[in-house]
Design a protein around this nucleic acid. Structure first.
Length: 499
RNA sequence: GGCCUGUUCGUCUAGUGGCCUAGGACAUUGCCCUCUCAAGGCAAAGAUCACGGGUUCGAAUCCCGUACAGGCCA
């Protein structure tokens, strides 16, 4: 039975890299009919916040990455977050809560008892000095293990001084630690380069490496899929598994390459949007983001680009993962979003665009039917949901004439005559359907000896205020006779004013 | 500084010893379609497979170095 987990630290929003890690874990779980666990690693007492937890839950939910075990999903109701409960047999899924409940304590005691852990009383100053010395001597700045063999008296003395000890792990000094990695194959570290890392901080809180191993082992995690910034942590964790007697539970590791910004540095805030929710707010579709993210560091042998959600769940495979880091390409994401937008049927498109339409003052006064017609006309042009309002708003609010369009098109020689004549002609229109209008206006052109371009462009600007827009006659049909005629009037006035 | 990981078109990638005069996708450019903008279609340009040595009849693919980049520890 496959069990994977996504274990973010709630020290900020869920960034794109985290979202991809979550996605790969989720896909791997679904593909293998396994379980996807969400665990919140909030052992950093200072930087962890509840808002971050909420942002992470919101992000995953928006992306459609539901978890089988983890914090209780109570997003719609917005109840305060309940860290003590969760859905699943291993609750709670918050490490701080687990620590508070003493869930790590037995493991510390066990390690102490078998001599695999010890109290260390070194002060920050002493550690700093140790580091400096190592640096001068060009040695790796590794803890020298001086507290490994403290006598009872020494310990008493330190305690009397008011020093609070940390708990350190006894790392073997010889041999190698190696592990199989599903994307990198075998990775090997020399133990003498490893160090006596801290298991429990002076505050009594477990460190990342310790809590992570205890939880992964007790939660029966079978595959650890995470960023390759954790490769260096892995040998420490492997050693811990063994010392804890969990050697048989050692999971398979899969370290995913990093995502870089355009300058080759790890993707970060200065590269622009890195929060998953920002993409939602900019008008990206979760299915597009997912598809794009899936392709960052993973591919099929035929380089397929667009995947249906179900298809992705079937085709995803860790063996298709790339070892080298991938640069995040906003242009390709944008293209992909357009692809997904075009696949939506008009009703679906409208409902997805609603969050962006609702803040528009004109939107409230219009029926869905009216808006739907306008939105549908520009269907294949949207690359972002957020573009929808601007591309259709001229249907619903006062025309704003684009100065450049006025100058280039309306003030062109003859435009005023064309519009004047056309207005007279359209007044007699018996219908205002796209087909009828096209026939009538083409006939009008012929009769008056105008070239079509001479007529089409001024009408477009007169009626919409801009040079770009939907198919002309379809646009006029949706607008209706009355509005078209009155806008031609406005345009004629405008031309008169300028001359 | 040490260790770890990586290096194929600008970008994401295919490629696991002969199908590679290196394939696809995004971006770019041109043409077609056309009432504009898109979308769509077609085409072009773009990679001495980081570099240098081996192994082999034959290497992007295997081995060894070097360079560069990123990560982790500090």
């Amino acid at each position: 039975m496959v069990r994977v987990r996504f274990a973010p630290s709630p020290t900020g929003y869920l960034h794109i890299g985290g979202a991809r890690t979550a996605l790969f874990n989720w896909l791997f779980a679904r593909k293998n009919k396994g379980t996807f666990v969400l665990r919140i690693e909030d052992t950093d007492e200072v930087r962890s916040t509840k808002d971050s937890v909420q942002a992470i839950l919101d992000s995953l939910t928006w992306m459609g990455l539901d978890w089988d075990e983890g914090p209780k999903m109570n997003l719609s109701s917005r109840e305060p977050l309940d860290v003590s409960r969760g859905q699943g047999p291993h609750a709670p899924y918050f490490q701080a809560k687990r620590a508070e409940m003493g869930m790590y304590q037995p493991f510390v005691e066990k390690l102490m008892k078998v001599g695999q852990a010890y109290h260390c009383f070194c002060s920050p100053e002493e550690l700093e000095e140790m580091r400096k010395k190592a640096h001068l001597e060009k040695r790796p700045p590794r803890y020298d293990g001086r507290c490994r063999k403290l006598s009872e008296k020494q310990k008493k003395d330190f305690e009397a001084q008011g020093r609070k000890p940390v708990v350190r792990f006894v790392m073997p000094e010889e041999g190698v630690t190696e592990f199989e990695d599903l994307v990198h194959s075998k990775v090997c570290f020399e133990n003498k380069l490893l160090y006596d890392f801290i298991l429990v901080k002076a505050s009594g809180f477990p460190t990342y490496n310790f809590a992570c191993v205890v939880d992964d082992a007790t939660m029966d995690v079978t595959h650890v899929i995470r960023g390759d910034d954790h490769i260096s942590n892995t040998p420490l964790q492997v050693q811990l598994y063994q010392a804890l007697g969990f050697g048989d539970k050692l999971p398979k590791f899969a370290h995913l390459s990093m995502i870089l910004g355009p300058d080759g540095a790890r993707l970060s805030k200065r590269h622009g949007a890195t929060s998953t929710l920002e993409y939602r707010d900019q008008g990206y579709l979760p299915e597009a983001l997912r598809n794009y993210l899936a392709l960052l560091g993973w591919s099929t042998s035929d380089s397929q680009q667009i995947f249906e959600w179900k298809e992705l769940q079937e085709k995803f495979d860790l063996s298709g993962c790339q070892k080298n880091p991938a640069t995040f390409d906003p242009a390709k994401l944008l293209w992909m979003n357009g692809e997904y937008l075009r696949k939506l049927n008009p009703e679906e498109l409208l409902s997805r665009a609603k969050p962006f339409l609702e803040p528009q003052p004109w939107f409230q006064t219009r029926s869905d039917g009216e808006v739907l017609k306008a939105v549908t006309l520009e269907r294949e042009k949207y690359k972002l949901l957020s573009e929808v309002p601007h591309l259709v708003d001229f249907f619903f609010k006062e025309v704003e004439y684009d100065p450049e369009a006025v100058q280039k098109v309306l003030q062109a020689p003859g435009a005023s005559d064309v519009l004047g004549n056309l207005k007279l002609d359209l007044q007699g229109a018996e219908s205002f359907s796209e087909k009828y209008l096209e026939d009538r206006i083409r006939t009008f052109c012929k009769a008056k000896g105008y070239k079509t371009g001479q007529v089409f462009h001024p009408i477009r600007v007169a009626v919409s205020g801009r040079t770009q827009g939907p198919s002309l006659f379809a646009m006029m049909e949706v607008m209706g006779k009355e509005k078209v005629l009155s806008r031609i009037d406005s345009a004629l006035n405008l031309i008169a004013q300028h001359s």
